[in-house]
């Protein structure tokens, strides 16, 4: 790697660097423009808010990245986040709240609520993984089915009622800050830990190597002795565990949860991964890239909000960013042919 990077810093190489990372530069320019044209854009409140928005989305994107790297996908991500949020919410309502769903349940520390949500979502992930690994259902279809199924289950479990009345210490998890510093929301910590954990898993363990191998060439990986099915199941379980964690945090952040929580998050996560360089052809993707992908989206949203665009335009902008980013990314590979 070191040898190939020693190309002289000339106009051409700078231009190539900029065009290879065009979306990121555009977003930085947009942010600078917004900063210059509005007040409070770089305020502690706003940046802290950005971090709080990025954190759960980054965790979801990390979860779905394993599926994408192995040429799969997980369309049930958003609904699983929603279900996890609802479960966590039902277990963290105050005892005296009149519409308490689990009215028989004793007071529970949030750690247990989190662990229970993780366990339940892990089971859903295992089902996804088994269907894909053993029944050979294409991941797109398998998780599309799971998306609908989880949505229905969530409606049944919550009785289609929004859940509120959370205990204060659960709410504080997402709204609190370290040292009372608004630039350091508590949400930074889980995102940081997940990022480090995933980086370690992807780069320093057998599981990571096997995952990239399966994405690179599933048949060749099998010949090399990789237990492809077991790896796939682990990947989908891990993905669901990430959704559970994200759902738990999103419930806390929103101060309420309903069947609508998490809707569409899977597409945002997949798009963020793709912008961050996770290849749709499998075998390629880095955690740092995923973080960049999520940041691109969130900075874009906040900028448009500050520039007082109608929220409807935000969607149009996001859609354009996805298409342009992937087109630019693919151009990098096509040029080599």
């Amino acid at each position: 790697m070191g040898e190939t990077k020693t190309t002289a810093l000339n106009g051409k190489s700078v231009l190539k660097f900029i065009s290879d990372h065009a979306i990121i530069f555009l977003i930085i320019l947009l942010a600078l423009f917004t900063w210059a044209n509005s007040q409070n854009f770089m305020s502690k409140d706003n940046v802290g808010n950005l971090i709080s928005n990025v954190a759960p989305r980054f965790i979801i994107a990390c979860g779905v990245s394993g599926c994408l790297i192995t040429k799969g996908t997980d369309l049930s991500a958003g609904r699983q986040v929603g279900l996890a949020a609802c479960f966590a919410a039902m277990m963290q309502q105050t005892l005296d709240y009149s519409a308490r769903v689990f009215d028989w349940m004793p007071d529970m520390h949030w750690v247990f609520a989190l662990l229970i949500s993780v366990a339940i979502m892990g089971c859903i992930g295992a089902v996804n993984g088994c269907v894909i690994a053993f029944l050979k259902v294409p991941p797109f279809i398998a998780t599309l089915g799971m998306q609908t199924l989880v949505y229905g289950a969530c409606q049944v479990i919550t009785g289609n009622q929004p859940i509120g009345g959370f205990k204060q210490n659960y709410r504080d998890l997402a709204s609190g800050n370290f040292f009372g510093e608004r630039l350091l929301p508590y949400l930074l910590l889980p995102a940081l830990l997940v990022g480090l954990f995933m980086w370690f898993l992807y780069n320093k363990t057998r599981h990571g190597k096997y995952m990239y191998a399966i994405g690179g060439n599933e048949n060749a990986a099998q010949v090399a002795g990789v237990n492809v099915n077991a790896s796939l199941i682990r990947i989908y379980i891990l993905a669901s565990v990430m959704y559970a964690l994200a759902g738990f945090l999103i419930g806390s952040k929103a101060g309420g949860a309903s069947t609508a929580t998490g809707q569409g998050y899977e597409l945002e996560a997949i798009a963020a991964c793709t912008i961050g360089g996770v290849s749709v052809n499998g075998g390629v993707g880095r955690i740092s890239g995923i973080l960049v992908g999520v940041l691109v989206f969130e900075v874009l949203k906040i900028c448009l909000q500050f520039l007082r665009f109608d929220p409807a335009y935000t969607f149009i902008a996001q859609g354009l960013v996805i298409i342009v980013a992937v087109a630019l990314d693919l151009r990098k590979y096509l040029a080599k042919k």
């Binding site: 057998r206 190597k209 096997y210 990239y212 191998a213 994405g215 690179g216 060439n217 048949n219 060749a220 990986a221 099998q222 010949v223 090399a224 002795g225 990789v226 290849s279 052809n281 499998g282 075998g283 390629v284």
Partner: peptide
């Protein structure tokens, strides 16, 4: 190409994949 190489991965990954243990 179909069942041997892991095309997009590095030489290092391709050499070590069967003996990571």
């Amino acid at each position: 190409r179909a069942t041997g190489i892991l095309g997009v991965l590095s030489i290092a990954d391709n050499v070590s994949i069967a003996s990571l243990n």
